[in-house]
Simulated assay, not measured.
Amino acid sequence: MNIIKNKKIWFSLSLIVIIVGMLLGMIRGYNLGIDFTGGTLIEIQMKDYVESTEIREITDEIDKNATINHIGETKDIIQIRTTENLNNEARMELFKLFKEKYSLEENQPLRSEQFGPAIGKEIQNKAMLSVIIATIGMLIYITFRFQLSYGLSAILALVHDVLFVLSVYAIFRIPLNSPFVAAMLTVVGYSINDTIVVFDRIRENMKHAKKNAYEEVAELSIRQTVSRSINTSLTTLLAIVALYVFGVESIREFTLPLLTGIMIGTYSSIFIASPIWVLIKSKKGNI
């Protein structure tokens, strides 16, 4: 299979996912989690440790996006955070369900309050600014080390990765929380690393290639580095999958965007970045 000659297929697949995701995001909105929306916090003292799945049988009736944590030395205190702003009457009604099911003796939950969003506009703007500064820095670095065409291709591939992951979250209505922001910043750095490996091989092969043989050089370079890229990603994914399967809920919120981002980053470094470089070089020449 010739990756470069079939670039229209890869571009089309990515565009379809991104367009569908962005449209769904605009029409029905993103599923913003507690960190963005604020909500209600309730802490209940249980008699023993209770699995999160069992607790969700009750909380799902009120908020399917509620987060559940176990705190205390014996993990017998459950902390429930809902995106719904429950008034005192609603919070007591929720506590009553737990009291009846688990025969609790307390008349009041340990803690019951409403809270504002942890990620306000200022933090969102700073996160966006950080991504922009990092992107500009990478563009300057790659242009200095390689050429402007490499830098532009790498940045466009990064934009593709971010939009693709956002689209997946919009399509499947996965909650967006603060771990997502941290994970995406990690993915941006990881993705550019894979792309630079391919570009480094392209630069070396260009020294011995015929003039304007961009497609041939890119195809050869991809084939020379693809096993390395896939093996590196697989070893990383194995560790992240283990964290996702065996980790607590807060860990899963961080590892899910990492899983998605690393898979998309590996895909884009092979099927998106290099074909974009070929298009730029074919049209603009020595940039």
Rank of each mutant, 00 (worst) to 15 (best):
I16L: 13
V187F: 04
K96V: 01
A213W: 05
L148V: 14
I264R: 05
N125Y: 13
K281L: 02
R56Y: 09
I123M: 11
K126A: 10
Y244S: 11
E89G: 08
G261D: 04
E43V: 12
L243D: 00
W10C: 09
G189Y: 02
I174N: 03
P117G: 02
I44T: 03
S130R: 09
N65I: 00
V188W: 05
F144K: 14
S282C: 07
F254Y: 15
L139Y: 08
K101A: 07
M22R: 01
Q114R: 10
I16P: 06
T236E: 05
E73K: 12
I276H: 04
P117S: 10
K101G: 06
K207A: 12
S274V: 12
N87T: 08
L163M: 15
V278P: 02
N87Y: 07
F115K: 08
I287R: 09
D48F: 04
F246G: 10
G25A: 12
V165P: 05
W10Y: 15
D63C: 07
D35I: 02
K5W: 10
T74A: 12
E73L: 10
K99E: 11
T83K: 15
S52Q: 13
R111T: 03
V241Y: 09
V241C: 10
E113I: 01
L94A: 04
Q114K: 11
I264S: 03
M1G: 13
I78E: 03
I78Y: 05
I44F: 04
A134L: 10
M263N: 06
F172G: 09
E215S: 15
G120E: 08
K121W: 11
G247C: 06
K47S: 11
S227T: 14
I71W: 03
Q224Y: 01
I192S: 09
F146T: 03
S221V: 09
M92C: 02
A182P: 01
I251M: 14
L97R: 15
I133P: 04
A183R: 01
I27E: 08
F172W: 14
L148S: 11
E122F: 07
V198T: 03
N286G: 13
L104W: 03
M138S: 07
E113R: 00
S167G: 14
I132V: 15
R223A: 12
L139P: 01
S282Q: 14
A154Y: 00
V248N: 12
A118C: 02
S268V: 06
V20L: 15
T37P: 05
A209Y: 08
Y190F: 15
V17N: 05
A154G: 12
L234Q: 03
K283C: 04
K96W: 00
T232M: 11
E219H: 10
G261E: 07
